Simulated assay, not measured.
Amino acid sequence: MVRVALLSNPKSTGNRQTLPRVRSYCASNPDIFHYEVEHVDQIGRALQTIARVEPTVIVINGGDGTVQAALTELYQGAHFPGRVPPIAVLPNGKTNLIALDLGIHGDPIKALERIVAIAKAGVDEHVVARELIALSDGQADSRPVLGMFLGGAGLADSILYCRNRIYPLGLSNGLSHFLTALAVIASILFGIRGRFMPPSTRPVSISLIRDGQLAGRFAVLIVTTLEKLLLGARPGDSRTGNMKLMAVDQSVPALFRFLWASLFKGLGKGAMQGIHMAQGDTIRIEGDRSSVILDGELFEAAEGRPIVLRSTAPVPFLRLAA
């Protein structure tokens, strides 16, 4: 009996070093069915094959784009009639936010060993429900893309700056993120601009159905359905919706309040000027060429073509810590 179905993308950055070990481990373990894809377009067919072996758990082993495409196909592809098996995500890619939220970190082989052990013993105590973010242009006939963490406004610009300017330097992820943070802070504090600095943020409008609208320039915009927002913030009342939103004004005082509250775990514990936190089930993001990044993939709003976010029905995930 197959306990774990592992879907791997050998072209993801993290797998270039770890995949040979993963292949060796899977080859010696009859409890694992290992399927590899080289492009996200192959994920639908992969999940059709995986459904035939009826796994107890599905594990995604790839970068942010692979995870996003697999979640979209699992939710919309109807490959598992009745109920999708719980999903786990191996630590891979640049951010690993979904894996961290599920308590999966460190060496991928050790994480995989733990997942196999849980699948053998029984998964019920480890299954948690998470809603996904369905991103679309709001049209009835559009096929949404699904994910769990969206960064927009200045945060999206910073991610793109790191991806296009800092990562090519070949530095470690930690150092790359540190240098990006320094450049972003310098551009906000001192107004430094230039070819090798992060771009200035564009105006954006954020609408929460039933809860009003925010408009302006934001240094940070986060929407997520993960259990915790980045840096530990927990906003709002879940009765208003499952998507958590945090926006920080593009101003020096707001940025300092945000950094201070982040360091001392004060985010979400009280109102702070320039820091906006809310929850909702439908969010519209509008602006002229305003970028958002959903689980590593870039999308762009335009005049008359907003980005619409809706939360989905709960999806089962496997959390390692019961």
Rank of each mutant, 00 (worst) to 15 (best):
V184Y: 14
A215V: 05
A5C: 12
Q76Y: 11
S172G: 08
G44A: 08
A111P: 00
S176H: 13
K120Q: 10
D288I: 11
V84M: 03
P199R: 15
V53Y: 07
K244T: 10
L221S: 07
L189Q: 12
R305K: 15
E300L: 14
L221C: 03
N9F: 07
L155T: 04
S28T: 09
A302P: 03
V252E: 06
E303C: 02
Q17L: 10
K269N: 15
Q68W: 04
G152W: 00
R45T: 09
T13P: 00
A99E: 06
Q42V: 05
K228V: 15
S187H: 04
A78G: 15
K244P: 08
K269Y: 04
A111L: 07
I118N: 00
E303M: 04
G14K: 08
Q273P: 04
F264P: 05
G232E: 05
I43Q: 08
I115E: 06
E54C: 09
V123L: 00
S238D: 10
G216I: 09
A134Y: 01
V128F: 02
Q279S: 14
L267T: 11
I192M: 12
L214T: 02
I50T: 08
R16D: 05
R130H: 13
I50E: 02
T13H: 07
L171Q: 01
A88R: 06
I60Y: 03
V2A: 10
M148E: 00
V127I: 11
R195Y: 03
R217P: 00
R319C: 08
V220C: 06
A321T: 14
L135R: 09
Q48E: 15
A302N: 05
A140F: 09
N164K: 03
E303I: 03
P20R: 02
F317I: 06
P198T: 08
Y167F: 09
A27W: 11
L189N: 10
S8I: 06
P81E: 12
G212N: 10
I222Y: 12
L320P: 00
G63E: 07
G287L: 14
A119F: 03
E297N: 02
A301K: 03
I43Y: 12
Y167R: 02
A278V: 02
R23I: 00
V315K: 08
A181D: 12
L132I: 04
H126I: 01
V59R: 05
S158E: 04
N9S: 11
D137E: 10
V184S: 15
E227G: 15
F258A: 14
L97M: 08
I58H: 06
R45N: 13
L135I: 12
V2D: 03
A181G: 11
A111T: 01
M197V: 09
G232S: 11
N29P: 00
G274D: 12
I118G: 00
E227D: 13
N15E: 09
P316F: 06
V67H: 02
R234Y: 07
G266R: 05
D288T: 03
L259I: 15
R114E: 11
A215Y: 10
A254C: 11
T56I: 01
A254Y: 12
A183V: 11
R284M: 14
E131A: 07
D137N: 13
A278K: 14
R21Y: 10
A156G: 05
P144E: 11
I118D: 02
R16Y: 02
P199E: 03
L214Y: 01
S158P: 00
I206G: 01
F190L: 15
G212V: 09
L309S: 04
L182W: 13
G216R: 13
E113Q: 15
G280W: 05
G152L: 01
T49V: 13
D249G: 05
L132M: 07
